[in-house]
């Protein structure tokens, strides 16, 4: 059954006769054409990366960060309506702080995602609000190791070894599936993340972009979510560009044959 014209898609928190909530589905549409975000779960931590589409030459390079922290040990990358992403992160921070004030320990990642999941789900239940227009990839480490989740506008979330969202998600997912996750190191994860974002950008080639990578790992960052150091970033970009060129050459070879 189609959505448009039936009247069942004009308000949030309305079921259509065949049991769909169209406004939630439309919210997902806001995500589909956005810049690509990926998350990789590794042996010893998590890597997050985003393809930040630059809409103007006047933007200050290296600022306007898109990856954010919820607590020292948890990071988030999201695609979609960016201000909604900030709203989501602010709520996550409140949850993390409230947990810590009650229990003293930092919140564990599964508990955090459970809480923000409830919050996001609540925005599908009333017609006075609209669902979040983002998919958020939440990664972190705690006493139980590394965790990676992605939450959707409906409030549903799944755990992943590797996940991608945004315009280049298909390309990115295909590449993620080739990796031996979660058995690679975060250092390798960083290089792969850069390569995958460069590949995924092929789907959005007419626009300039800036790469942003963060990681959180017990071994590399002492369990803190941080942007990767500049040297590592440069190395990852170099690796990504070399791989990119190789791929093009391979493509050309095929054509010749």
């Amino acid at each position: 059954m189609s959505s448009i014209g039936t009247g069942y898609d004009l308000s949030n928190a309305i079921f259509s006769p065949d049991g769909r909530n169209f406004q939630v589905e439309y919210a997902s549409k806001a995500v589909e054409n956005a810049g690509t975000s990926i998350g990789i779960k590794c042996r010893d931590g998590v890597v997050l990366a985003v393809e930040k589409i630059q809409t103007s030459k006047l933007l200050v390079a290296g600022r306007n960060k898109r990856i954010q922290s919820i607590d020292r040990h948890i990071g988030v990358a999201y695609s979609g309506i960016i201000p909604d992403g900030r709203h989501f992160v602010n709520r996550g921070r409140d949850e993390a702080q409230s947990f810590k004030s009650l229990y003293k320990d930092p919140i564990k990642v599964p508990n955090l995602i459970d809480r923000v999941g409830l919050y996001v789900q609540n925005y599908t239940c009333a017609n006075s609000v609209r669902p979040f227009g983002i998919n958020a990839i939440v990664g972190g480490v705690d006493d139980d190791g590394a965790h990676l989740y992605m939450i959707e506008p409906s409030g549903v979330y799944w755990g992943y070894c590797g996940t991608a969202i945004g315009k280049g998600r298909q390309t990115a997912k295909a590449e993620l599936e080739k990796l031996d996750l979660p058995n690679i190191s975060v250092k390798d994860g960083v290089k792969e993340a850069a390569r995958i974002i460069y590949l995924a950008h092929e789907d959005n080639k007419d626009k300039e972009f800036e790469l942003e990578i963060s990681w959180v790992s017990q071994s590399e960052t002492g369990g803190r979510h941080e942007f990767i150091p500049q040297e590592l970033f440069d190395a990852a970009v170099q690796y990504a560009q070399e791989e990119d060129d190789d791929e093009e050459e391979e493509d050309e070879d095929v054509e010749v044959q």
Binding site: F22, Q23, Y26, K29, A30, N33, V129
Partner: peptide
């Protein structure tokens, strides 16, 4: 608080 079918506000 209403998305269009293409996800616009």
């Amino acid at each position: 608080v209403t998305y269009s079918p293409t996800g616009r506000l």
